[in-house]
Design a protein around this nucleic acid. Structure first.
Lengths: 367, 367
DNA sequence: CTCCGGTAGGAAACCGATTTCCCATGGCCG
DNA sequence: CGGCCATGGGAAATCGGTTTCCTACCGGAG
């Protein structure tokens, strides 16, 4: 017999192929693999026929066990529901699957302990590498991972020391600065900031850059103008802007640390009768697709999520391949980590007060 | 020695633990597993200590090989960038990972051949089951999969014969009908339909239901009023509505097969100076979060994506577990497939011409 | 006629677990 | 006092491949 009960359809193994072709398992394996072995043309044909007849599909689990690599990479995001990530995942997916890799994805929901759990689970599953997007893990823990021999690439987040772990990030500093300067250029002097959770590195960078830009431009550097949201969500954004507008001397413009929060802010303004951009100019960060909708028309900074994804994936791939190409004796001296910084451009639309896109909003009077 | 070169950090195996604890691998395995084996308290303690000291993490690949199950399920979506899917994935994720399952996801981008490729790859990776969301695969092929012993649950798509494959769907017929009837209730008689690609089952159902509802209500059943978009995207939606508006006798209302296309349609209207809902009332389908933004305020039908995800996941889990619980002799007679239909509710907002939500749009005059 | 290198393919070890089978004790019952 | 059952744990087969090692044949060179 051979096959257990609950298997349902009995899987065909390499042994079955070998038997049908009248050769040994080893030979079939050699035929299937890409190593250069001597196999007679006639034998090749017999094996090929057997493979075709049985519709043999190698068991990737068994392969993974012996090869010690699974052609699988893990992707950890903060929340799949946040539109930034699907975009990034699509980028990663595109390059990886072309190379025959499969993605397993985990969503930490912003909780560090879940993040650690996901990493553990991925390692147990022997992923060949991990793309960590916007993690909350502390620098030391991340560094420990790579020190431990795991290939990791950070996406849209970097460590203080850039030489420890590869990273692909957008230029948060330049982006935030561009946002603030653009608003200042409109004559605003009380420019507020809604910051995302400060355990997420990009949000701290954006906040810091905002502060620097504000003082560089000689604007009102009132600490009350900076408010930190407890999550990068619509609700938190709405709430943050509510607090800002309740200030004795409210801001006339606000730079929001993410589009999600910015759109929440817009929602709040609409509800509260605050007219954007007349009463409050708004600039977001990320350039998620929703922002370009006519009814929203959010001015924002493009964080090139998809691009970040593809670059991170390429970086990870080359690490993985480097590790395995040197399968001759020399223990692979890992290449130094590097951080790729993508430029961040301001995307001007209607919410900042430029004339450009506002008409579309004006075009929609009450019915 | 023992460990190969490129491993980086040498993994600790069950053998290492066994050696340290002074027992055999088998005993360690028995200790770790949940079967009820006799192990002396003192031995348990020694093993536990060894496990802790070495920080042993079992190799899931090796486990998968012998157990013939991987605690992994595949999810196939049409496009991860389409906001409906992340929502659904989040639902699936939530229930599966609580049970220790890992998700591997594949995006078919609507191309049937990629879909088949993804299924192949997932099977090779020995997934325990697959959730197929909105597939374009033909009924027969899907049925063949389950006939082949793979556990499959369809999400937001069902087969003509509901007893072949489990499915969790939303009530497309009732939803589409509600949309049409709502518009008819506003006095519209020329109600158009923008249908999604007709190789996607829900889109055909919605289209059919639209047709039925239109004739049942005695409205204008002009075939020109039905236009099929070649993809469920913003662009395709915009283009479709453009065609409708160019008709000699254009519609005054349109039911769009998905929110993505509906929002694209809205975008087109804004550009073209068509005022919604005055000149054209619009109702979408899906209720993606963007639609509730004040500047968009899309009336739509809720397709409960997240719910569909959690239900599909539960269904899949119970199938998987059924298969393995009966690990006694009797070949598991598979339970009959069933189709779960979730109700679809109309979500009334501003684009259909009800007074309810329009004020928000009116509140935003030009600056 | 041997020896050698190029072909061809089989046998078996191995990857890291799980699980079955089997062998020891030791205490209790008859 | 012998046998049996409840404990406790080791040895080895197994999962489905990959890869190393080894043998065998064949033709040509020495």
């Amino acid at each position: 017999m051979g096959n257990r009960f609950p298997t349902g359809g009995k899987r065909v193994t390499i042994g079955d192929v070998a038997a049908l072709a009248g050769v040994s398992k080893g030979t079939v394996s050699k035929f299937l693999g890409d190593g250069d072995y001597y196999i007679a043309e006639e034998t090749r044909a017999r094996i090929a026929a057997a493979v075709a007849e049985l519709d043999f599909q190698p068991n990737a689990i068994a392969q993974g066990l012996v090869r010690r690599r699974t052609q699988t990479v893990g992707v950890i995001v903060a929340s799949i529901a946040n539109p930034v990530y699907p975009e990034m995942i699509a980028g990663i997916q595109a390059v990886l699957e072309e190379r025959g890799f499969t993605l397993i994805i985990g969503s930490s929901e912003g909780r560090p302990e879940r993040e650690a759990g996901i990493v553990r689970s991925m390692r147990q599953r022997q992923v060949d590498g991990i793309v960590m997007a916007s993690v909350t893990m502390r620098d030391g823990e991340v560094a420990a991972l790579v020190g431990d021999g795991l290939d990791v690439v950070l996406a849209s987040r970097n460590l203080a020391r850039g030489d420890l772990v590869d990273a692909v990030v957008v230029d948060n500093v330049a982006g935030a600065r561009a946002a603030v300067e653009h608003l200042a250029g409109h004559g605003h002097t009380r420019i507020a900031h809604v910051a995302g959770p400060q355990d997420v590195v990009p949000f701290t960078q954006r906040r810091q850059a905002y502060c620097d830009a504000v003082s560089d431009a000689g604007l009102d550097a009132d600490p009350d103008l900076v408010t930190v949201a407890e999550a990068s969500t619509l609700e938190a954004g709405a709430d943050a802007v509510r607090r800002l507008l309740a200030l004795p001397e409210p801001p006339t413009a606000v730079f929001v640390g993410s589009d999600g929060m910015a759109i929440g802010a817009l929602e709040h303004c609409a509800r509260a009768g605050v007219v954007v951009p007349r009463d409050l100019a708004v600039v977001g960060f990320d350039n998620i697709w929703v922002g370009r909708m006519p009814g929203i028309s959010l001015t924002t900074v493009d964080s090139h999520a998809r691009d970040v994804g593809t670059r991170a994936a390429h970086r990870l791939l080359s690490r993985i391949e480097a590790r395995w190409e040197g399968r001759s004796s020399p223990p692979p001296r890992p290449a130094a980590a590097e951080t790729t910084v993508l430029p961040a451009e301001l995307v001007v639309r209607g919410t900042c007060g430029c004339a450009s896109d506002v008409p579309l909003r004006a075009l929609a009077p009450s019915s």
